[in-house]
Amino acid sequence: MSPALTEPSKFKSWYRKNDIAITPWLFLLPAVLFFATYVIVPIGQSFWISFHMWDGLGEKTFVGMDNYERLLGLGDQKMDRKFETSFWNNIKWLLLYLLAIPMGLFIALFLNQTVTGIRLYKSLFFFPFVISQVVVGLVFSWFYLPNDGLFDVMMSWFGIDIRGGVLGNPKTATYGIIAAGLWPQTAYCMILYLTGLNSVDPEQVEAGRLDGAKGFRMLWYVILPQLRPATFIAFVVTIIGALRSFDFIAVMTNGGPFGSTRVLSFFMFEESLSEFGFRMGYGAAIAVVLFFIMLGFIAYFLYQMWRDEKEGR
């Protein structure tokens, strides 16, 4: 027989023998290639680009740590004012966004009943999460309109007048945007807790009742420990959501007024691709800083998941 004919059959029998060893790699190959090209490699590239000056078209010029020195104010330079505002706004987002967790729990407790039509109520309460953040942002920016917006009208009932409207006033704008963001995020946490409450062990609740626990004590000592997985996921999605916030800011204020609502993700976008010119190197440096802020959380989440994985085995 000619070798051309024996080769495939040889391959076939070899493949058959090693089927179990090879198959997972064949199944992984396309996704891993894709994921590496679009996610893993770009992370490294961003690090590399952050050491350069680059307009996105021409040659990159290596500038070492210059971008970071300018951004963080290392050495004898001052910290970039825009960076400072963005960073503190990110902190505000992080802290206030976490309110979505107790608020979601509260609504879930309120809705965890079996009355007629409760299913429809639950889905309608969840509604804000399904709508795109762009639309939610637009809706809230009309809600906040100076003088004509419902919020301003309601505030005037109490004699409160916010100059320039909520979004036009540098003191209130960021809080206005965070409130808009909390709306869908609370809905998300609510649905997580509703599912969690479904699987609470009724016997433990009964036992707790016999021991005289009720109301808040019951919630704290009996219910919440059982809701731990739901709380963990709510925590993960809320932190990630807070640090990713971009759509709301882009749609509602475009960073203004006077740059007071910038966050790192928006600042990065603005530096890299805006009318002020393409400063990709500087943008990449901002992204790297944001990445490191997030890395702390990511590492914690992954560690928790890794531990669950080991326990589950």
Binding site: Y38, V39, V41, P42, I43, Q45, S46, I49, G56, I240, L243, R244, F246, L264, S265, M268, F269, S272, L273, M280, G283, A284, I286, A287, V288, L290, F291, M294, F297, I298, F301, L302
Partner: peptide, 12 residues
């Protein structure tokens, strides 16, 4: 979990 922004410049 990674922030989109760190992918933005290279992916673009």
């Amino acid at each position: 979990f990674v922030p989109f922004q760190i992918l933005m410049v290279p992916v673009r």
